[in-house]
Each structure stands twice: as C-alpha cells, then as structure tokens.
Design a protein around this nucleic acid. Structure first.
Length: 528
DNA sequence: ATTTAATGCCTCC
DNA sequence: TGGAGGCCCTTAAA
C-alpha cells in the first residue's frame, strides 16, 4: 500500500511538474517574441523544456562570459515573468483540480479502469454484435468478454463441467445420482409444526465441519437450492458469474462431489428444484433466460428467453411446475407456461412497481403471489393479470427503503416476512388476503451488507411455519433464526468453519440441513 | 436531494 | 511470494 501511495504521489508530482514545465515553456516563447533569441539559444530552450537540462548546460559551458551573462539575464527575466503569472496559473490549476477531480483529492481511488465500455456490460445488453466490434482494445476485448460474459446460444446447453472431466464414468455416476435420487426420495411426512422447544433441540444438533464447507462456484453466490432428497445431501448454488455449482456431500474427498457448470452468462438470481420432478433444476438469470437443468439427459434446457430483459426472481404457480411467474428487474412480470411450445410468451406489464426483486406464490391459494419491489410490496391474483397495468389486490407501503425480499410462510401462507434496507425484518399477518395485511412484528437486524456482499434475504424454514432464517454481519460469523414474534431462536456458529458472511441461506424441506452461501463461492452446510 | 448500485484491495496462508 | 478469500467505506449515477 505504501508502494501504491508513493507511486500515486510521484505521478501527481510529475504531472504538476509537467504543468510547470509547460507554463515555463510558454513564458519562454512569449519572451522570445520580445527578446530575440539567437539561433544557438534555441537549442538550450529545447533542451530545457523537453529533453532535460544537461545538454543545454554543456552548450552553456562553451559560450563566452558575455553570452553566458546575456543568457543568464534572459532566463532570469523569463523566470521573473513566469513567476508573475505562475500564481495565476496555479490558481487556475487548483480550480481545475477542484472542479475535475474532487474525489481524487480526498480519497485515493475514485475509479480504476476505464475501458471502452466504461462499465462492465454484456455485448448483448450493449446490442453490439460480437463479431463486428471495433473497440480500441481489440485483442483483449474478446478474451475479456469471453471470460466475464460469454454469450450463450439459445436452446439447450449440454452439461459440460467447468472444473472436472465430464467424459468420465465418475461424471455419469454423479449425474445419475442427481437424477435417480429424486425418484427414490421419500414422500414428505406429515408437516406437523414442531414446538419451538423440540425445534431448538433439532437446531442444536446441526453441526458444521471442514468436510461440509467447500467452494462450489467462482465469485459471489446469489442463490442456493437444497435438493429434497432425504438419502443424499445435494446442494446447488447459483453465482454472479452465471455459474451453477452442484455438490453431493456424500462424496469423499469433497472435491470429488463438486461439478461446476456455466448455464448462464450473467448472475443466477434464483434457483429451485422442480417440485414436480427434482431431477430438474430451474435457474433464472439476469441474462434474460430461465433454464431447466435436466440431470437425466445432461442438458440445461431453455424454458424462457427474453433477450432485452433481466430476470430477478421466479416461482411455480402450479404445483406441477407447468406454469411459472417470472419477475423482471424493470418491474414487469411474465407468465410462463411450459406446456406451450417455444420459449417466449406474453409479458405482463406492471406499471405500479419500478423494480421487482422477488416473487413468491402463496403456498395454499396458489393464485396469489407477492412481489417485492423498490419500496412497495404487492400481492396479485394471477387470474386477474392483464397484459398491461395489472392492479395489485394489496399494497404494503410502509417500507422506507428498498426491499430485498418478501416471502409467504411455507405451510399456510398466513405470514409474510420482508427484508428491508432500513435494517428491519418485518412479519405481516397475511391470513386474510382480501383485506388489510397488518404488521405483526419488527425485528431489528443489520441488513447493510455493503458493496461486496450479496444482500440478505430472510427466508422461512420450509418445515417450520413460524421461524425465519437470515444471514448476519455479526462477529463471530453466524446465521440467525428468529421466531415470527421477534424472539431470537438460534445462531448457527461455525468457529473456524464459518469465517465469512453467509448472505443466501436455504433449509431442507424435511431434514435439518442448512446451506449458506457466501460472497466468494463457498457453501457452508450445517447438518445433523 | 436522496437513494441506490457499483465491484478493488488488503490480509493471510 | 502469490493467490485465494473476505469484505466496509465511499462515491458516482440515477
């Protein structure tokens, strides 16, 4: 750091010196208009201003005393005039600095790299044809784009592993596990609500170890899904890089159980196993596609594509996963029917929300779904959606800052939990959709994750109707569970195994398994 | 004016 | 020594 600051200092000095030199030069020129310089002084002038003074000095030494004196006088005069206007130019300079770069004077790094695009943008978003680009950095540009935003073709993509040999028998066995375990999973037993006491006891039995922490994607994790299998522990993670990492924790050593894929070119914002067939993993992305990873066929099918859009969140409207609701960043929504051929469909414009971060379907009354936008929470009836200007049934408007998420409680849908940038988690009573949705509880919780960490989203434990799970900034690092009435229930602490912030968390629907993803691609699993 | 989104650098092994 | 891992403030743009 010392090196960089001194480097910056030296460049700063250099630049100011350059300015001085320039003004001096200018002064020399202006004096040369009035004082006629002889031909041999011209070389000294050039040497002075450009190449350094030593050659000029050598020339000086060869002159007569009279000429030396004369040149000295000239230069003294010039310096005098220069000094007179120096203050003026210095003031101008200060003003320029003040105007042009106030951050630079305060802080060391306002902005770093300025390539042709200014900021990272995919070529697709820029609407630039990758073959026909003409940018200054021609040789590096395609590599950069290939690294950061590889353009993925429409249609199905083969499951080709990014990290390991995907032609081996091992890989075939791996996929087979994910495809077959789905069929053999036991049916959900009675979803009886545990008492808080027994629930707490179960949570206390969940542990983390070196074997249950592993890096499964490159870059920050944006979404996590736990496979419903009760036999194997299978975790999927979606990353900002567009990667999807799959981890079968039953493999030892653990690196043998991880395969990484690249089904998307931009962040994977939402990831769910199909409730109808857990051999299907649906992934949604900012890149404007919704894909379905089919383990039995080793492909990522394209379910829905809208080139101009950026998708933030989706959910299954029908329990058979045939119809979906997709939320867009720009506030619009799409109804997707997977039974109709083609991967595009009618888009439903929603004028009320300027942005959608999450959508979630009511677990019982599946015609209702809830959206979290910039400021407002809306609840819609899917049957009453119109191509343009769909009116929500209910709006919650009490959030004062941007909302990260809103989810119905998993079994009855009688509660809604929201995560807001005002450092409050709110629980609402949504047992009566047709009337008011009263606020039940407010939980103070630091939700300011800063620039480098994925935002928190409080989610329900799918098997515990009254408890929410949320990441935390607290030290030592932890994942918290709160009761809907606001009471703290449990903190998942992992000592050396949990040394970072788990922003995105998912709990197994029937077992006591928690998967938390951090902002460097690591998954942390607590299990009993 | 206020809020949001952005994404580089330090530490440690 | 280099690279992976972890991560707040701050700042520019909206």
């Amino acid at each position: 750091m010392e090196a960089t600051s001194s480097k910056a200092e030296s460049t700063l000095q250099k630049s100011s010196l350059d300015v001085h030199a320039e003004s001096n030069k200018r002064q020399y020129k202006s004096t040369s208009d009035t004082v006629i310089l002889s031909a041999d002084t011209e070389s000294s002038q050039d040497g002075d201003s450009d190449e350094g003074t030593t050659p000029g000095m050598d020339d000086f030494s060869g002159l007569s005393p009279y000429e030396k004196k004369r040149l000295k006088n000239i230069s003294e005069n010039a310096n005098f005039f220069a000094s007179l206007q120096l203050s003026e130019s210095a003031a101008r300079l200060r003003e320029m600095i003040k105007k042009r770069q106030p951050p630079e004077s305060k802080r060391k790094k306002p902005k770093k790299k300025e390539n042709g695009t200014g900021c990272r943008r995919s070529m697709r978003l820029l609407k630039v044809d990758p073959s026909g680009v003409s940018l200054p950095a021609t040789p590096t540009q395609p590599i950069l784009v290939a690294d950061e935003n590889p353009l993925l073709p429409p249609g199905p993509l083969e499951m080709t592993s990014e990290n390991r040999d995907d032609n081996s028998e091992l890989f075939k066995g791996f996929l087979q596990t994910w495809a077959e375990v789905s069929k053999t999973r036991s049916k959900n037993t009675e979803k009886a609500l545990s008492s808080i006491k027994s629930y707490k006891a179960n949570l206390n039995g969940m542990i983390i170890s070196e074997d249950t922490v592993y890096k499964v994607t490159k870059g920050p994790i944006f979404s996590v899904a736990l496979h419903p299998s009760e036999i194997r522990t299978l975790v999927a993670a979606g990353a900002r890089s567009g990667q999807v990492g799959l981890w079968d924790l039953t493999h030892q050593p653990k690196e043998d159980g991880v395969y990484i894929f690249q089904p998307h070119s931009q962040p994977v914002s939402c990831l769910y196993f199909s409730p109808a067939n857990p051999a299907h993993l649906l992934s949604l992305s900012y890149d404007g596609t919704l894909r379905c990873g089919d383990f039995s066929r080793a492909v990522f099918e394209e379910v829905y594509r809208d080139e101009g859009s950026s998708f933030s969140s989706f959910d299954f409207l029908a329990e058979d996963a045939s119809t979906l609701i997709v939320g867009h960043w720009d506030g619009s929504m799409s109804l997707v029917d997977r039974r109709t051929p083609g991967t595009s469909c009618e888009k439903l414009i929603n004028s009320s929300l300027s942005k959608i971060r999450t959508v979630h379907v009511h677990p019982v009354h599946r015609q209702y779904f809830i959206t979290a936008g910039l400021r407002d929470i809306h609840i819609y009836d899917a049957r009453c959606l119109k191509p343009s200007r769909s009116q929500p049934l209910i709006s919650l408007t009490e959030h004062t800052k941007s909302i990260a998420s809103a989810y119905f409680s998993p079994l009855t849908g009688n509660r809604v939990v929201t995560t807001c940038a005002d450092c409050k988690l709110r629980i609402f009573d949504s047992s009566c959709i047709s009337s008011k949705i009263p606020l039940l509880t407010t939980i103070r919780h630091n939700t300011i994750t800063g620039r480098w960490l994925t935002r928190f989203q409080a989610v329900w434990d799918p098997k515990q109707e009254d408890c929410i799970i949320v990441g935390s900034m607290a030290h030592p690092r932890r994942v918290e569970i709160f009761h809907e009435r606001g009471k703290w229930v449990h903190s998942f602490l992992g000592g050396e195994c949990l040394a970072s912030v788990c922003s995105i968390n998912a709990m197994h629907p029937t077992r006591y398994i928690l998967a938390g993803g951090n902002s460097s691609g690591r998954i942390h699993v607590f299990m009993n």
